[in-house]
Computed example of a mutant assay.
Amino acid sequence: MQVLIANHGAYLSGIATTLWLCLYSGVLTLVVGTVIAGFRVSPLTPLRAFGTAWVTVFRNCPLVVVLFFMAFALPVLGLNASYFVFGTVGLALYTSAFVCEAIRSGINSVPAGQAEAARSIGLGFTQTLGLVILPQAVRSIIPPLGSVLIAMIKNSAIAGAFGVGGDLYMTGTRLSSAQGEAVVPVLIGVALGYLVITIPAGLLLGYVERKVAIAR
């Protein structure tokens, strides 16, 4: 407990950095996942093929491999950025495959008659998807989407291992190695830090889910 009290500032800073990492990754993964889900249900065969390939690659490729590619392969190809940027993008791309499947399942839960009615009044595919299908699909999307986002927060620890800097994972590593603090109390502090993030996030998602359920 003394370790936690003496280093509370470092833990708070680590929580803040992890929150920013998860916030940027969450926004990016929702945008990319929604676009790929649209590709997956598109009437155009090339878009469906691209969406299927995207999900197949990222869903079956370990996050560590994705982050290795972002951190070490992209600089060799001439794309340079901070490890924070690489970690954010890698985490978002990996999670986007799972977000896509959650959104696609919600889209498939909407009766086909809704899309047919939209087309009958002259709406195109993009308009039908954005104005008719997705607003109804939100009700069934939120529970699986919430689980994916919570998993993304926990996966941010893996991104931290690639030198993001200042996040909870690196805070624990620095305290236990560079400063020689006892490993067990340090790890307990790191675990508590992630709980500080994930528990409120889970409660917020549960509240949103209940509000949507009431609105049905």
Rank of each mutant, 00 (worst) to 15 (best):
Glu181Lys: 14
Ala161Pro: 02
Met1Trp: 10
Asp167Pro: 02
Leu134Glu: 07
Pro185Phe: 07
Thr45Cys: 02
Pro135Thr: 06
Ala191Met: 08
Leu205Ser: 09
Phe162Ile: 11
Ala137Cys: 09
Thr88His: 08
Lys211Met: 07
Asn60Trp: 12
Ile107Glu: 07
Glu181Met: 14
Ala97Met: 06
Gly106Cys: 06
Leu30His: 01
Pro62Asn: 02
Ala73Ser: 13
Leu4Glu: 10
Val41Ala: 03
Ala213Ser: 12
Gln127Arg: 13
Leu23Thr: 06
Gly33Tyr: 09
Gly14Ser: 07
Gly163His: 06
Ala213Gln: 15
Ser109Tyr: 04
Leu67Ser: 11
Gly202Phe: 10
Tyr194Arg: 06
Tyr207Thr: 05
Cys22His: 02
Gly163Val: 01
Gln114Glu: 14
Leu134Gln: 06
Val76Phe: 01
Ala16Cys: 03
Ile199Tyr: 14
Gly113Gln: 09
Ala97Lys: 05
Leu23Lys: 02
Ala49Gln: 14
Gly14His: 05
Leu44Arg: 13
Pro111Phe: 00
Pro200Arg: 02
Gly166Tyr: 06
Met152Ser: 03
Ile36Gly: 06
Leu47Val: 07
Leu67Thr: 03
Thr17Leu: 04
Cys100Asp: 12
Leu44Met: 11
Ala112Lys: 15
Ala10Lys: 15
Gly113Glu: 07
Leu4Thr: 00
Ala213Asp: 09
Val148Ile: 05
Ala118Asn: 09
Thr45Gly: 05
Leu93Tyr: 05
Ala102Ile: 06
Tyr194Asp: 03
Ala157Gly: 11
Met70Thr: 03
Ala115Arg: 12
Val64His: 13
Leu30Thr: 03
Ile150Phe: 06
Gly33Ser: 07
Ile107Gln: 06
Leu74Tyr: 14
Arg216His: 11
Leu44Phe: 14
Gly9Pro: 02
Ala137Ser: 10
Met152Trp: 10
Arg59Asp: 10
Leu195Asp: 06
Phe69Arg: 01
Val65Lys: 09
Leu91Pro: 03
Thr56Gly: 13
Ala49Asp: 09
Ile199Cys: 05
Ala215Glu: 11
Glu209Val: 03
Leu192Gly: 05
Pro75Asp: 00
Ala115Asn: 05
Phe58Thr: 01
Phe72Arg: 07
Asn60His: 12
Met1Glu: 14
Arg104Asp: 02
Ala81Phe: 14
Ala115Ser: 15
Ile188Met: 09
Tyr207Cys: 07
Pro43Ser: 02
Thr88Asn: 07
Leu91Tyr: 11
Ala118Cys: 08
Met152Arg: 04
Phe86Ala: 12
Ile188His: 01
Thr198Arg: 00
Phe58Leu: 12
Leu23Arg: 00
